[in-house]
């Protein structure tokens, strides 16, 4: 998706009165980073670790009889 697309989506949303906002950008680097707009605070997760938690929880529970 290029930035023209983003603008056109947000503009169209405004026209049809649907709330829409750009949250951020996806990255190839496996980190989920939330920055405050003021830039003075941030939280970082490793998404490989998150995937491990999400992907294995049920299987581990079921294997743990």
């Amino acid at each position: 998706m290029n930035f023209d697309d983003i603008d056109s989506i947000l503009k169209l949303a405004q026209e049809v009165k649907v709330p829409a906002m750009l949250l951020g950008l996806a990255t190839k680097d496996p980190s989920l980073i939330i920055k405050s707009s003021a830039g003075d605070n941030r939280i970082v997760w490793n998404t490989n670790g998150l995937r491990q938690a999400w992907g294995c929880a049920l299987t581990e529970s079921m294997n743990d009889l």
Partner: peptide, 27 residues
Amino acid sequence: LTEMLFAQEQTFGANLDIMWETGQSAL
């Protein structure tokens, strides 16, 4: 959002700019 990052072949990340002025708990 995190579930969307878990693609079949790869795990992606994301950089989010969000207005938050309160503590991480509230966020």
